[in-house]
Structures are given as structure tokens and as C-alpha cells.
């Protein structure tokens, strides 16, 4: 896999939302700072690779997923898909071939399914919308296949049901079946298991891992749970306040983290069998700042237990610290 070509490439990608100041700011005409939800992300996903994006909430993970699936437009940088620049592509018909190849799975499957539609219609919707099938037999065939691939067996039993008649795990499988129906090359999964029970979580992770095996489909898996990322991903990118602060193989990030933020994430993760080998770094203090007020210098420095003078002044560059292992921290210089 390391030599497979990139399917997705983000170069200095930015998404800034216009700031929404308070009422007073509005009246006084004070400009409010832009919300820099994604603020210069470089990342590549290879064909058939699973990359996990890890970070606490508010670090811009969902925004990144939404810009890749073209639900919002980037405000800067470049977005390359399979070598083509798709940064400014928009409009329903221009996006049709892209939608055919990039799909999405959502955090809350209940919210992502229209309560008035049957499971059949939900899974068939992408095939109908993108006009990928010509007749009803073919449609039923494809829908049945997608059901089976997502572990909804026997498929016919689910066709006529409505979302509220399914369990949480089944609902997420329906969303997955819908995404699979068009046989995409890349699926963006935004915290697909964080709303599910632990036992169901493992089922869904298993489905996704099996799919990658069978279909050589790339997956960008967003989560705040490091062990889940380790389990499913080939590589992990750790995100903090709109930037990627560390990338590396799943094992490197989990067992040999270099950035203090990654270390803090790991320390905060509860472990089933105690926490024998964890370094005793003081726990992270405080909360992630708002994306409208990003600190100067290294954006992590106000919470970093190891910060020194330089961190307050300059933003650290991304440094290679090993094969496929990069981090943005002055300590590595």
C-alpha cells in the first residue's frame, strides 16, 4: 500500500467561516474574527488506504469531512482527487462524477435517514439520483448487494422498514449500504461509531474493515477515540484546532507518539487493562480554544505542559521524525 497512488490530496486546505460576533459587535459594526475551522491542512490518502483523523471536538474534523465531500467549499488551498484539482468544482451536474466516487457515512445514523423513507428507497437513492441503473430489476439487484455487503441479511427483510423500526446498529448499516451502492473509491466516515454501543461498535468496525479487504476502497475515518483509530487505520493524522499536528502509522501514533498533544490524547484514553506503561505526563488542562481565537505561535502552546518561549512566538514547521512519521513541534527540532 505505501506505493499506491494518492486518491485524495489536501494541500494547505482552509475553511474559514465568517465570524458571528455578538449582537453588540453587530450594532457597533465591529468586525468579528473569522472562524478558522480548518486552517492549512496537508494530508494524503492513498488508494485503498484507511486514514484516521483523530482530535477532540472542535478541532475541525467534521468540517474537513464536509469539505472533502463537497458539502461546503474550501476558502483556500487545494483539494486533489485522483490527480484532478476539484477545489472549485461545484454545481449539481459538475459534481455528479465526484459524488459517484466519494461517499460519506454520518455520526448519527438516525438523523441521517429521512424518517419517511423506507430502507429500500434510502439505499436506492444514490443509484437513482446519479442515474447509475436503468431498470428496476437492476436497481433491486444493486440494492440487495449493498445490503448484504453492509451486513443487512437477509436484505428483503429490511426493504420495507422505516428507520425507526431498526436498531442503532442496523441504521448505521443502512447508511453504509447507501454509501456502498455506488461503489465509491473513497468513503468519508464522520465518527460513525461514537453514538453506538460498544458491542455494536465492533460490528460496524468489522464491516468497514471487511469492505476495505474486498473492495480496495479508501476510507477517511474521523474519530476522537485513539484505540478505534488504531484498530481500523493504516495511518493516523492527529488534528488540533484546524491543523494536523502529527501523522504516522497507526502503531507509531499509538505507541510512539511524539507530539505532546498526541501523548495527552493517549493518556486521556481509558484502557481496559490498566495503564501500566503510560508516561506520567500531567493531564491536559483547560479546554480547546474557539476556532475564532487561535493562539499565536504553536496553537497548542497554552495547554502544552512542555511549552517554552519559542512555542509562544513561532508556529512550528512540520518535521519528519521517522519513515511516514511527521510532527509539528519545536521539541523535535
Amino acid at each position: 500500500m505505501p506505493d499506491a497512488p494518492d486518491i485524495l490530496r489536501l494541500e494547505n486546505l482552509q475553511v474559514h467561516f465568517p465570524g458571528r460576533g455578538g449582537v453588540l459587535d453587530h450594532i457597533l459594526g465591529r468586525p468579528s474574527a473569522a472562524v478558522r475551522a480548518v486552517d492549512g491542512v496537508d494530508l494524503a490518502v492513498r488508494r485503498g488506504e484507511i486514514v484516521a483523523i483523530v482530535g477532540e471536538s472542535g478541532s475541525g474534523k467534521s468540517t474537513l469531512g464536509r469539505v472533502i465531500t463537497k458539502l461546503i467549499q474550501p476558502t483556500g488551498g487545494r483539494l486533489l482527487f485522483d490527480g484532478d484539482d476539484v477545489t472549485s468544482m461545484k454545481g449539481f451536474s459538475a459534481l455528479r462524477p465526484y459524488r459517484h466516487r466519494v461517499q460519506m457515512i454520518f455520526q448519527d445514523a438516525y438523523q441521517a435517514l429521512n424518517p419517511r423513507h423506507t430502507v429500500f428507497d434510502i439505499v436506492a437513492e444514490p443509484l437513482r439520483s446519479l442515474r447509475l441503473v436503468t431498470d428496476h430489476t437492476q436497481l433491486t439487484q444493486r440494492v440487495r448487494q449493498s445490503h448484504a455487503a453492509a451486513g443487512l441479511n437477509p436484505p428483503e427483510e429490511f426493504f420495507a422498514r422505516f428507520p425507526h423500526e431498526l436498531s442503532g446498529g442496523q441504521r448505521q448499516r443502512v447508511v453504509i449500504a447507501g454509501a456502498l451502492a455506488v461503489a465509491p473509491d473513497l468513503i468519508v466516515a464522520d465518527e460513525p461509531v461514537s453514538m453506538l454501543d460498544v458491542s455494536i461498535r465492533a460490528q460496524i468496525l468489522q464491516v468497514l474493515m471487511d469492505l476495505r479487504q474486498q473492495r480496495n476502497m479508501a476510507l477517511l475515518f474521523i474519530t476522537h477515540d485513539l484505540p478505534v483509530a488504531w484498530l481500523i487505520a493504516d495511518r493516523i493524522a492527529v488534528m488540533y484546532l484546524g491543523r494536523v499536528v502529527e501523522t504516522g502509522t497507526a502503531d507509531d501514533i499509538t505507541f510512539r507518539p511524539r507530539h505532546p498533544y498526541t501523548v495527552a490524547l493517549r493518556n486521556a484514553t481509558p484502557h481496559v487493562r490498566g495503564h501500566s506503561d503510560r508516561e506520567k505526563l500531567p493531564a491536559l488542562k483547560g479546554e480547546i480554544p474557539s476556532a475564532a481565537r487561535i493562539p499565536n505561535g504553536c496553537r497548542f502552546h497554552p495547554r502544552c505542559p512542555l511549552a517554552f518561549a519559542r512555542c509562544r512566538e513561532d508556529a512550528p514547521p512540520t518535521i519528519e521524525v521517522g519513515p511516514e512519521h511527521t510532527t509539528a513541534c519545536w521539541l523535535m527540532k
Partner: peptide, 22 residues
């Protein structure tokens, strides 16, 4: 703002169909 509208857009449903069917 509901997420199923977002999903409909991702799966390629056009605006007219989103309004009529969703």
C-alpha cells in the same frame, strides 16, 4: 439543517428532488 438533507446532497440528489421527496 437536518442531516438527511446533507446525506441526500452527498448521494447526488438534486435540489428539486430534495425539496419534493425529502
Amino acid at each position: 439543517e437536518r442531516q438527511f438533507v446533507e446525506r441526500a446532497r452527498v448521494v447526488g440528489t438534486n435540489d428539486l428532488n430534495i425539496m419534493v421527496h425529502h
